[in-house]
Amino acid sequence: MSRLSVPKTYKLYIGGKFPRSESGRVYDVKTAQGGFLANAAKASRKDARDAVVAARAASSGWAGATGYNRGQVLYRIAELLEGRRAQFVEEIASTEGRSRAAAEQQVDAAIDVWVWYAGWADKYVQVAGNANPVSGPYFNISTPEATGVVAIIAPQESSLLGLVSVVAPALVSGNTVVVVASERFPLSAISLSEVLATSDVPGGVVNVLTGSAAEIAPWLASHADINALDLAGAGDTEWVDLQIAAADTLKRVLQPEVGVPAPSIDRITFFTETKTVWHTKALT
């Protein structure tokens, strides 16, 4: 007789904890063939707001860490992902209906993207910042730093690679993140949350919501304590309305992309602010 399996309850990830949606709602996650796989939490407006509170609370600590420190923390996630490679392959293969080889390829790519971005944490400032030769006796330097709290609609396809490709670059400079996972394929996001929870990432730095992007995104777009909005995976929603709502608080907005965003330093610098510091020079 084969052993009876122990299925996992998939929940949200907010402030380093795994709550159910306060709304009590769940939705079916199905296999590629349409069979029942799991109940995912269907996040509400309240969950989104809780996530923003957690992200804001984690902001100063994460942004204040050294680049070397953030780089190591991010690299550590890649290490843990590698260790749980089989689990992610299994989830992707069963939900996205991909071949085992394709699922493996996606997980490997996600790990490599994570490593690539981890390495930027103590370098992007050197590439994107500069000393300025002003006409006067002043020390003058421009450095990029984290924008603050970034809300992200993750790509709907390639659930793990898509998620990693939008979350990792926002984290590099010290932003904290509220991300809405792929609606149809949320399992990778929750499993990634378990990786984050057992790595060195402080609670609240990444907050993961599952559910309807169309329902949750408007609350994020209009939330006054969010600094930037990444609409990467929002192409199928009324995303122009989201951009309009975001204008009320002058959020920085990245428009939707087709597919998975390519690794790029632009994704890091887009969620930074350039600060220019002047200081007088004098012998007395």
Binding site: V134, Y138, N140, K275
Partner: peptide
């Protein structure tokens, strides 16, 4: 949280020096 910080000076501008804001 400000795009330009002047230390022991104020209202200095230069074409080589980026100027612009955070937040709103």
């Amino acid at each position: 949280r400000a795009g330009v910080v002047w230390a022991n000076t104020f209202n200095q501008f230069d074409p080589a020096s980026p100027f612009g804001g955070y937040k709103e």
